[in-house]
């Protein structure tokens, strides 16, 4: 709870000297409107301003109790453009993409897809925490072998996340019982897989460059349908 944002209505608190001491307040400087507009322009973002904060997303979420901010709070923060808090939260990484929130939202906001939009932005901004590290290592492993090798994943993650050392005995017992094969299973034609990843990456880059123009054209066609 301590890292949550509090709105201080008490005017005394808002004296200039206090602002620096209290980080947990929404002040104009904490809002990034360009970031907000970038999200709101996407297909998923279009519905975000219509959120009624009913909380059905968080109530439905199987992991919302683990999140810094519940999906409902994340949507509210997008409305305000609290870029730093959003990208540093563990919410976007913890989401299991079960889509319960998206199915039940009465305003057709799709929080699951919102997370998918926010993740690459967090990566591009160079934000690192234990959840984002895990995601990156996982996709690296898949890129290399074409399979999700548990051993590679765990060992690489342990190297970057020192806290994992506590889990070592558990990992060893898994290995002894043959539940954690040491040699990664490799699929055939990993070169082709690599090429696919590269094409996708270059496409995304190009798209980002063209984005504003393309988006409007697309929406026009959709409206025409």
């Amino acid at each position: 709870m301590s890292n949550k944002i509090y709105i201080f209505t008490n005017l005394h608190v808002f004296s200039c000297t206090m602002i620096e001491m209290i980080k947990n307040a929404i002040v104009p400087e904490s809002r990034d409107l360009a970031f907000r507009d970038r999200i709101l322009k996407t297909d998923v973002g279009k519905k975000i301003p219509t959120c009624i904060q009913c909380g059905i997303c968080a109530g439905s979420c199987p992991v919302s109790h683990e999140m810094d901010y519940t999906p409902r709070e994340l949507v509210r923060m997008v409305q305000l453009g609290l870029k730093k808090e959003i990208l540093n939260s563990n919410t976007i990484w913890i989401c299991t993409t079960c889509f319960s929130c998206s199915v039940r939202c009465p305003r057709e906001i799709r929080p699951t897809e919102l997370m998918e939009i926010l993740k690459p932005i967090a990566v591009a901004e160079g934000i690192k925490n234990k959840n984002s590290k895990f995601d990156r290592i996982f996709s690296d492993v898949v890129k290399k072998t074409g399979r999700a090798s548990e051993f590679l994943l765990i060992s690489k993650y342990s190297l970057e996340e020192p806290g994992m050392i506590k889990q070592a005995p558990f990992g060893l017992s898994l290995i002894f019982k043959g539940k954690l094969p040491l040699l990664p299973d490799k699929m055939e034609g990993t070169d082709e897989l690599k090429a696919i990843f590269e094409i996708k990456a270059s496409e995304t880059k190009e798209k980002e460059k063209k984005e504003p123009a393309e988006k409007t054209a697309e929406t026009e066609v959709e409206a025409g349908k």
Binding site: C54, G55, I56, G59, S60, S64, H65, R72
Partner: peptide, 12 residues
């Protein structure tokens, strides 16, 4: 019943 108390941001 399962819900979020949105005033507290807690699942209930």
């Amino acid at each position: 019943v399962q819900y979020e108390d949105t005033n507290l941001g807690l699942k209930g």
